[in-house]
Structures are given as structure tokens and as C-alpha cells.
């Protein structure tokens, strides 16, 4: 009975630690893979160029235009959320969420660029971002995820 009681008491703690470790390992692994992918894609020669400029360059042969967009919903892992919950007690920089949003923005932009490339475009102008928190079904489930949408107008050269 004594050992059972101890187990009953320790179980939630052990579960939390297990989730933390899983979250830490998988979160780190996924993040590293993701950044490798992002950097490789961004620096790929011939990648579509993006400019958050209101007006396209004036040119002799006016290009075709098309609306392009890319979006991604990304979720926080248990470990990062745990740090964040602690962080929110004392305030300050939420390091763990910064990289998450950075990844989401860049991934969304890459998807937009991929769409533009598929249309044969070389540049995307007037790039805008839209970020929205996608909440879970209930407050208890604490599904913390963020959607980032990137959109712009692709210029498809005629020549």
C-alpha cells in the first residue's frame, strides 16, 4: 500500500518529465531539420526574389501579375510551452517562441515563393504577412498553434 501511494503521487510528475524530455528531443530535432531546410531553400540559386514594395519596377515590357500565397500552421512542443508558462510568471523574452514564429514566417514565405516559381515568376512584390493564433477546441486542451500567411503579387515576365 505504501509503495502504491508513492506511485500514485509520483505518476503525474513522471508523466510531466517524460513529456518534457520527449518534447525537448523531438522539438529540437524538428527545429534543426526545419532550419536546415529553410536555409537551403532560401539560398538556392534561382530562388524567386521577394520585395515588400508597394509598386513594381517600371519596365518596357509590362509583366503578367498573379496573386500568390503560402501558409503554414505550426505548433509549439510541450517543452517550449512549459518554459513559456514559467516565463510568463516572471515576464521577459520568450526565447522559446521566437524561433517558432521565425520558422513559421520563413516557411510561409518559402511556400509563396514556390507557388510563384511554379507560375514562372522571378519576383514577388508587395509581400504582406498575416499571423493568427489558432486555438484548440477548449482552453484546457491548450493547443497552442500559430498560422502564418504570406502573400504578394508575382510578376511573370513575358519575354
Amino acid at each position: 500500500m505504501g509503495s502504491l501511494l508513492t506511485l500514485q503521487f509520483l505518476f503525474p510528475l513522471l508523466l510531466a518529465i517524460l513529456l518534457l524530455v520527449t518534447g525537448y528531443i523531438s522539438g529540437r530535432y524538428l527545429e534543426r531539420k526545419h532550419y536546415e531546410h529553410i536555409i537551403a531553400e532560401e539560398t538556392r540559386p534561382g530562388q524567386v526574389m521577394v520585395f515588400p514594395l508597394r509598386l513594381p519596377p517600371p519596365s518596357l515590357s509590362p509583366p503578367e501579375t498573379a496573386l500568390v500565397m503560402g501558409s503554414v500552421v505550426i505548433s509549439v512542443d510541450y517543452f517550449k510551452r512549459f518554459i513559456a508558462t514559467l516565463r510568463m510568471l516572471v515576464g521577459g523574452r520568450l526565447n522559446s517562441y521566437e524561433s517558432l514564429l521565425d520558422r513559421a514566417r520563413r516557411e510561409a514565405l518559402l511556400r509563396m515563393r514556390a507557388e510563384a516559381e511554379a507560375m514562372g515568376a522571378k519576383e514577388v512584390f508587395n509581400v504582406k504577412y498575416e499571423t493568427a493564433v489558432i486555438s484548440g477546441r477548449s482552453a484546457q486542451s491548450q493547443v497552442g498553434s500559430v498560422e502564418v500567411l504570406a502573400y504578394g503579387t508575382a510578376l511573370i515576365g513575358k519575354d
Binding site: K80, I83, L86, R87, V90, N95, E98, S99
Partner: peptide, 14 residues
């Protein structure tokens, strides 16, 4: 825009 390993120290401290 992010510190790639900044949060480990953060975590221990927190």
C-alpha cells in the same frame, strides 16, 4: 531574430 540556444540556460534558471 532568435537565439538558437538561448533557451537552455533560460530553462535551467527558470
Amino acid at each position: 531574430n532568435y537565439v538558437s540556444n538561448g533557451w537552455q540556460k533560460d530553462f535551467v534558471l527558470l
